[in-house]
Amino acid sequence: MTFKLIINGKTLKGETTTEAVDAATAEKVLKQYANDNGIDGEWTYDDATKTFTVTE
């Protein structure tokens, strides 16, 4: 399955996707991606669209 991350950061905005077997696995990968890029904020997840959003 494809999961999307929408980034609403102070210095970085955009989106990325990852392939994962489930939402929990995708969340780990996407949170690591955000952490690697210095993004720390509030996370939400929409199961209907398989989209995570992080807002700083």
Rank of each mutant, 00 (worst) to 15 (best):
M1L: 13
M1Q: 13
M1P: 13
M1A: 12
T2N: 08
T2M: 13
F3C: 02
F3V: 03
F3D: 02
F3Q: 01
F3W: 08
L5A: 02
I6A: 04
I6E: 04
I7L: 07
I7V: 08
I7D: 01
I7M: 10
N8V: 14
N8C: 13
G9N: 06
K10T: 11
K10R: 13
K10N: 11
K10F: 13
T11N: 14
T11K: 12
L12A: 09
K13Q: 12
G14L: 15
E15D: 06
E15R: 07
T16M: 15
T16S: 07
T16L: 15
T16V: 15
T17Q: 11
T17G: 04
T17E: 10
T17W: 14
T18A: 11
T18F: 11
T18Y: 09
E19T: 14
E19F: 15
A20W: 02
A20R: 03
A20H: 03
A20T: 05
V21P: 15
V21Q: 12
D22R: 03
D22G: 04
D22C: 05
A23L: 09
A23I: 11
A24C: 13
A24E: 13
A24P: 09
A24D: 10
T25G: 07
T25C: 08
T25M: 12
A26N: 00
A26C: 02
E27G: 06
E27C: 12
E27V: 07
K28M: 12
K28D: 06
K28S: 09
V29C: 07
V29T: 10
V29S: 08
V29G: 04
L30V: 03
L30W: 04
L30Q: 00
L30M: 05
K31V: 06
K31A: 05
K31W: 06
Q32W: 05
Q32E: 10
Q32N: 07
Y33A: 03
A34W: 03
N35V: 15
N35G: 08
N35P: 01
N37L: 15
G38C: 08
G38I: 03
G38W: 05
I39M: 04
I39H: 04
D40C: 12
D40H: 14
D40R: 14
D40P: 05
D40V: 15
G41D: 01
G41W: 07
E42M: 11
E42W: 12
E42R: 07
W43P: 00
W43R: 00
T44G: 05
T44H: 12
T44N: 10
Y45V: 01
D46S: 05
D46G: 02
D46H: 06
D47N: 10
A48I: 11
A48M: 11
T49I: 07
K50E: 03
K50M: 09
K50N: 07
F52S: 00
F52V: 01
F52A: 00
T53N: 04
V54D: 00
V54R: 00
V54N: 01
T55I: 08
T55E: 06
T55C: 06
E56M: 11
